[in-house]
Write a protein that binds this DNA or RNA. Structure first.
Lengths: 249, 249
DNA sequence: ACCGTGAACGAACATCGTTCGTTGATGTCG
DNA sequence: CGACATCAACGAACGATGTTCGTTCACGGT
């Protein structure tokens, strides 16, 4: 269609060292692991949305184009970062049919703790099943505990989905909440804004909201309590699906 | 810092009618509601990620800049679209303490149905509490049912969060799943890929996954069953928090 | 008949993900 | 030991994005 501008850099002048301001050996030692680590550093510092091919490249003192030799595209890079972090999950408990409920809870807590240790990161797995090697390992760990429970296979399948969903979105919402309330005064202001918002609603049109407002804004650091509440409900609900004989465990 | 290129269009030649190809009355066809409707049309057709200020403007035969007179920015526009859709929720049941469990389920089903009727749209509310007018109305409806149940206020607060979370992410995942499996052969191929992926795993390293593989890929259109499974677990779990006297309801 | 207000608008900016063609360091073969 | 082939590194560019800027111009009140 339209004529494009000349594609090649100005010729003439190649002698003055392509990159005068960098003194490391000309050939950089770029690798997939280094790129993943750099991206993770950005996630920790500024969140998933700050992960830009250029930002990652800057972190490594190079250009964005150089990354594509080691990484297919941005999505694949983020998936790799996510799976790398999943490697931090240590769950060596051997499935015990008598303690499956506590073991599932413990695994879920570990999962959320590892994810929330890296800011936003849960966001990248919101709409997708993690198929990385560490993700599969984690799935095996969770399923092995569930399988030991004696629940029917169909229920185990649903349970894995439900738990993964719950755990992932909890990690994400915790991170968003933490980002909005970095400092204690941020948190106070957040609570204040929420309360005044609820308070500003008509008590006639919204009687329940205004009446329950104090219960709707969670008190300081009740984040964990909310998670435990949901976790307990899910695990108890799963136990209700046990075949009658196994009900005791 | 750097000198910017000249900011104004070439002068000379203003006589030839700024926009020859459009014959609608020159002024006055744009409004907030029209913009929201156009954005929603794009969501329905191509998903949330396809909603671009330029795409919305194109839909209205205008330029992107014109939208900013009626909408603060893209986020606010998407929030408005979301809240507009929430207006489709009709839930006129009067809270009945004896039927709160079924009423909560019915409300949740309606919520998911309305959201999934508009593609991706649930995505825009993943990390945020809906504070639009229809969102608040929906929250009042849900809370009024929960309040009639006799559950403690604290539990109601947690329950609202948990249900909202579950319902939103279910709607989103349903949409993502539907997008990946538009045609029946897409769905067949999706199942096939998932099964072969599970089958490709080492049965020694991942014994549980390989053993449960048939239960992990949901059979045709078990999407609703999964939702009902989670919904039942949550509602039953909530009922377990009723003070002893009210347990019968 | 004027005129001010504010919506509409084209153009531009900064930034994004990604691709292209070149370059140059390194390992290999003659 | 020197010619060569390979391929990561790289600068530049493309097209698309959200948003802002300064201008224009139709309309409503005086």
């Amino acid at each position: 269609m339209t004529e494009r501008a000349p594609r090649h850099p100005r010729d003439a002048w190649h002698q003055p060292r392509g990159r005068g301001h960098r003194h490391a050996p000309r050939r950089r030692t770029l690798s997939r692991d280094v790129i993943i680590a750099a991206a993770l550093r950005i996630v920790d510092r500024d969140g998933v949305d700050a992960v830009t091919m250029r930002a990652v490249a800057d972190e490594l003192d190079t250009g964005a184009a150089s990354l594509y030799a080691h990484v297919q595209d941005k999505d694949e890079l983020l998936a790799a970062v996510f799976d790398h972090v999943l490697g931090d999950i240590v769950f060596d408990a051997v499935p015990d049919p008598k303690r499956w409920q506590e073991q599932i809870k413990e695994f879920s807590r570990t999962y959320v703790r590892v994810l929330t240790a890296h800011n936003d990161l849960a966001k990248v797995s919101l709409g997708s099943i993690p198929t990385g090697s560490n993700g599969v390992r984690g799935m095996e760990a969770m399923l092995s505990v569930l399988a030991a429970s004696g629940l029917p296979g169909q229920v185990i399948g649903y349970a894995a989905d439900l738990l993964g969903q719950f755990v992932t979105v909890t990690a994400y919402e915790t991170a968003v909440f933490a980002k909005n309330t970095g400092s204690p005064e941020d948190l106070a202001e957040f609570h204040h804004r929420l309360l005044t918002f609820f308070g500003s609603l008509s008590a006639i049109e919204f009687p329940t909201i205004t009446a329950l407002a104090p219960d709707l804004v969670q008190p300081d650091e009740a984040e964990d309590a909310r998670f435990e509440f949901g976790l307990d409900i899910i695990v108890r609900g799963l136990a209700a699906h046990l075949p009658p004989k196994r009900r005791g465990a």
